[in-house]
Amino acid sequence: WQSIRTGQAVPAGSHVRLNLQTGDREAKLPDSENGKSDPREERRRKRLGKVDIDSNSFTSQELKKALAKMKESEKAERKAHEEEVRKKFRPIEQLKEEFEKLNVKMETDYEIMVKLISKFNSSASTLDEKVAALYDLEYYVHQVDNAKDFLSMGGLRLVIDGLNSTEAMLKEHAAFVLGAALS
C-alpha cells in the first residue's frame, strides 16, 4: 500500500482504502498485477476448464467467415420456418376462390367501413339505418389500423356531420365513433 495525496490520480482498477490508524488514503495495484493471483479468477478458470482465450488468436477474416456462417444458418432456419407455415396455412387468394365457389364473399374491414359510410351518407337511409351504421363503425374503428383508414376515407367529416345533426341518437352514436377512433 502506498500513500496518495488529495487529488492525485491512480491507475484504473487500483485498490484504494482509508487507513483508519493514520488517516491517510492508500492505493495499490490489483494482486494479479503484483505477481499474485486473484482467487476468484482461479476459481473461474477452473470452472471454465482452464481455457485461456487470447483476444488476438482469431484473425479478422476468420471472424468474418464465422459471422457469415451464422447469418447463413439463420437464413436457412427462417426459410424452413416459412415453409412450415406455408404448409399449415393457405394463401388468402386461394381462400377467396374457395369461398366464391361456395357463394360466400369475404370482405375486408376497409370494404365494410366504406359500405357503412355510404349507408350513413345515403339520403335514402332511415334514421335507424344511420344509427346502425354508426354503431357498426364504432366496432370497427376500435382497431388502430381501421381508425387510420377511417380517417383517410373521410370518416371525420361523417362524424362531424353526425355531431351537428338535430337527431339526438345520431349525435350520441357519432360521439361514440369519435371516442372509439381516438382511443
Results as ranks from 00 to 15, higher is better:
Gln94Trp: 09
Leu137Asp: 06
Thr108Gly: 04
Val104Ala: 05
Ser122His: 05
Ile160Phe: 00
Val144Thr: 13
Leu127Ile: 04
Glu82Asn: 10
Gly155Pro: 02
Val131Cys: 06
Val131Leu: 01
Ala175Lys: 06
Asn146His: 06
Val114Thr: 10
Ala133Pro: 07
Leu102Phe: 04
His142Glu: 15
Lys79Leu: 13
Lys148Met: 04
Lys88Leu: 10
Glu82Tyr: 05
Asn121Ser: 14
Glu167Asn: 14
Tyr139Glu: 10
Glu107Val: 11
Ala168Cys: 06
Glu129Ile: 07
Tyr140His: 15
Arg86Ser: 13
Tyr140Phe: 15
Pro91Glu: 15
Glu82Ser: 07
Arg86Trp: 04
Ala132Pro: 01
Tyr110Asn: 15
Met153His: 02
Gly155Arg: 01
Phe99Glu: 05
Phe176Asp: 10
Ala124Val: 08
Thr108His: 00
Glu82Trp: 04
Ser165Asp: 14
Tyr110Thr: 12
Lys171Met: 12
Glu172Trp: 01
Asn164Ser: 15
Glu83Ala: 06
Tyr110Cys: 11
Gly155Val: 00
Ala133Ile: 06
Ile160Asp: 00
Asp149Tyr: 10
Leu102Glu: 15
Glu82Phe: 04
Leu102Ala: 15
Lys79Ala: 15
His81Glu: 12
Lys105Ser: 13
Ala174Asn: 09
Glu138Asp: 05
Leu134Ile: 03
Leu158Ala: 01
His142Gly: 12
Glu111Val: 12
Val85Trp: 03
Asn146Trp: 01
Phe89Lys: 08
Lys148Trp: 00
Lys79Glu: 12
Glu129Leu: 13
Val131Gly: 05
Asp149Gln: 05
Leu102Tyr: 05
Glu107Arg: 14
Gly155Met: 01
Asp128His: 11
Gln94Met: 14
Glu129Lys: 14
Asn164His: 15
Asp145His: 10
Phe99Thr: 05
Ser118Met: 10
Glu97Tyr: 11
Ser118Gly: 02
Asn146Gln: 11
Ser165Lys: 03
Met113Phe: 08
Ser152Glu: 08
His142Lys: 14
Leu134Ala: 08
Glu97Ile: 14
Gly155Lys: 00
Tyr135Gly: 09
Lys115Cys: 01
Phe176Tyr: 07
Asp128Phe: 07
Gly154Ala: 04
Ala168Met: 11
Ala132Thr: 14
Tyr140Lys: 11
Val141Leu: 09
Phe89Glu: 03
Glu84Met: 11
Asn103Glu: 13
Glu138Lys: 09
Ala133Trp: 00
Arg86His: 13
Asn164Ala: 14
Asn103Ser: 13
Phe150Lys: 03
Glu138Val: 01
Leu163Ile: 11
Leu102Ser: 14
Phe89Thr: 02
Lys88Val: 06
Glu172Gln: 07
Ile92Pro: 03
Ser125Gly: 10
His173Leu: 07
Lys79Ile: 12
Phe99Gly: 03
Ile160Asn: 01
Glu138Cys: 04
Leu95Val: 12
Leu158Trp: 00
Glu82Thr: 04
Gly154Glu: 09
Ser152Pro: 02
Ala124Phe: 06
Phe99Tyr: 10
Ala124Asn: 10
Asn121Ala: 07
Val114Gly: 07
Thr126Trp: 10
Leu116Trp: 02
Asp161Gly: 12
Leu116Ser: 08
Asp109Ile: 06
Glu83Arg: 03
Ala175Trp: 00
